[in-house]
Simulated scan of single mutants.
Amino acid sequence: MNTQHIRPTSFTAERAWGARTIACMNGISTRLHWTDQPYRWHVNDGEEVFVLLDGTVDMHVRDADGSVRVIALQCGDIFYAGAGCEHVAHPHGEARMLVIEQEGSI
């Protein structure tokens, strides 16, 4: 039996958005990310789910009309980005997120 026990608040990476892959199942990856820097505006290949495990993050989302909304995420919050949703995460200090997405997605 293969098992893992991970304490997210202890996880760090060598660079912003560094990740530890927890599982890849049927083309879906589950990864623990650590960052202290914003990512970049992007659109994923498919759907994406963020679970904020530690810290606070402002998720910026570009709507179809070009306007930008900011959603303040707190520890325990879940954010879903549907296919085609342009977004970027801006942490306030260090943050740790569980990200579930299509394997190989940016």
Rank of each mutant, 00 (worst) to 15 (best):
M1Q: 13
N2Y: 13
T3A: 12
I6Y: 01
R7C: 11
S10D: 14
S10C: 10
S10I: 04
T12M: 01
E14A: 13
E14G: 12
E14L: 02
R15E: 15
G18T: 00
A19C: 10
T21P: 06
I22Y: 06
C24E: 14
M25V: 14
M25C: 12
G27Q: 03
S29H: 03
R31T: 09
R31M: 07
R31H: 09
L32F: 08
H33L: 10
Q37P: 05
Y39W: 13
G46V: 03
E47A: 11
V49Y: 10
F50V: 07
D54L: 14
G55M: 01
T56N: 09
V57L: 10
M59Q: 13
V61E: 04
V61M: 07
R62Y: 00
D63K: 12
A64L: 14
D65W: 02
D65F: 04
S67L: 00
V70L: 10
I71D: 12
A72T: 09
L73N: 07
C75N: 15
G76W: 07
D77Y: 02
I78W: 03
G84N: 04
E86M: 08
H87Q: 03
H90M: 09
G93C: 08
G93E: 05
G93S: 07
R96S: 02
R96I: 00
M97K: 03
M97C: 02
L98N: 05
I100T: 12
E101L: 01
Q102W: 07
Q102M: 07
S105C: 10
